[in-house]
Nucleic acid binder design. Structure first.
Lengths: 215, 215
DNA sequence: ACTATTATTTACCAAAAGGTAAAAATATAA
DNA sequence: TTATATTTTTACCTTTTGGTAAATAATAGT
């Protein structure tokens, strides 16, 4: 008997496709309504299946919510490793970091919003994760920045608040996009807008840490 | 007959007190659960009255929500007028602006969070307000910054993105406070933390616009 | 003291929503 | 082709919740 799980049967392929379609739909609904405001009915509707069928794939709302959160966290972990490019100069590392973070806001606005809702609500689901995963990485990254300062590579700046600022300044392009659209008089932020934003934020941070301007 | 509305009878005093107690409770619940997740029952419970009694004061949830939003917007309008201190230097104006915005995050974290939930959710209630009130003020403020640049008072910087960054960097101390608490290893952010954050953000922005450091 | 107004409680309801159970339909393995 | 496993649909149930209606209590005005 061939392995049930690994064989790419018609069913297993469809299942994978459908699951990711559901996750995308869920992301959209959670982003725009928050956990409580998101209904399984609405998520199912977006995914073009029945509510009962949705429940067949994700037995309950909590589980679905956690899966959506996990997806965006996985992306962050994968792309936002501050220490991977230690050989680069501080400017390059930071510029790259800002670029990656901004890319995520661009490519995964809904996941970012779900995360934002969760944190603003007091991180009822993610608090443990923040403690066990994010904090250790944060502490390491802070140490690296301190090292840069001690070596005189960048200006004296509080590393912790530097990170908070970078996160806020990049995350805002996902979370507060509606406000920006209104203020910029556009119905949607364009690639151009994101490119300019990326430059503006990078520039601002690089200037602030006293590193040379890049370009 | 003396004016019913203006006389400070026992009832009218209690009413005012109770209404503000309700609004504070509502703010807390909307902040931590979002609009849909907030129940009238829970708000009433926090305000120590019955649900029916709550409904007597605020006939429906939408209205209550709008009142909570209005409160925080009024505070912002009152405190965040960029043009009021035109006689000051750019550094002073911006430093003052950052300080005020940070104060609001400090003093009204729940209102700030309610606003954040609303915007992240696509501003279903506030969109019109943003267009009619915020945009005009934004446009004026942007013009002032452009003037500064043209006069050579500050470095060339994109004014729009400068504002987005300031807002994000200050707002984050209200919205993402839980994340910071975890990362800083504290159960609550202290006055000291906010003071340091204020300095860090001010410093960062002031450096970035190429103005002299203030202290 | 009596009346009118305001505040609070009690009783109730309809809609929404998460979820269970089981039948029916479809696909896969032999 | 037939038995088995997977997927989808149908029917239904319970809890939560925003809200209505009306009775009761408390306060204010005369």
């Amino acid at each position: 008997m061939t392995d049930k799980k690994l064989r790419k049967t018609k069913q297993s392929v469809n299942r994978a496709l459908l699951e990711s379609r559901i996750l995308r739909s869920a992301e959209i609904v959670f982003a725009s309504k928050g956990f409580s405001g998101a209904s399984m009915e609405r998520i199912a509707e977006l995914a073009k299946i029945s509510k009962q069928n949705l429940i067949y794939y994700f037995p309950n709302k909590d589980l679905l919510y956690k899966r959506v959160l996990k997806e965006i966290l996985d992306i962050w972990i994968e792309k936002l490793s501050f220490l991977e490019h230690q050989e680069d100069s501080p400017e390059e590392v930071i510029a790259n970091y800002v670029r990656e973070k901004m890319q995520i806001s661009r490519l995964y606005p809904n996941g970012s919003k779900v995360f934002a809702h969760e944190i603003i609500s007091g991180a009822p689901v993610l608090k443990e994760y923040l403690i066990s995963h994010l904090k250790p990485q944060f502490d390491r990254d802070v140490e690296l920045v301190k090292l840069w300062i001690n070596k005189g590579l960048i200006e004296e700046i509080d590393p912790q608040y530097l990170f908070f600022t970078i996160w806020a300044a990049t995350q805002t392009y996902a979370d507060f996009s509606v406000q920006m659209e209104v203020l910029l008089g556009k119905s949607q932020l364009s690639d151009e807008d994101f490119k300019r934003a990326e430059l503006a934020v990078t520039d601002l941070v690089v200037r602030a840490i006293g590193a040379k301007k890049i370009i």
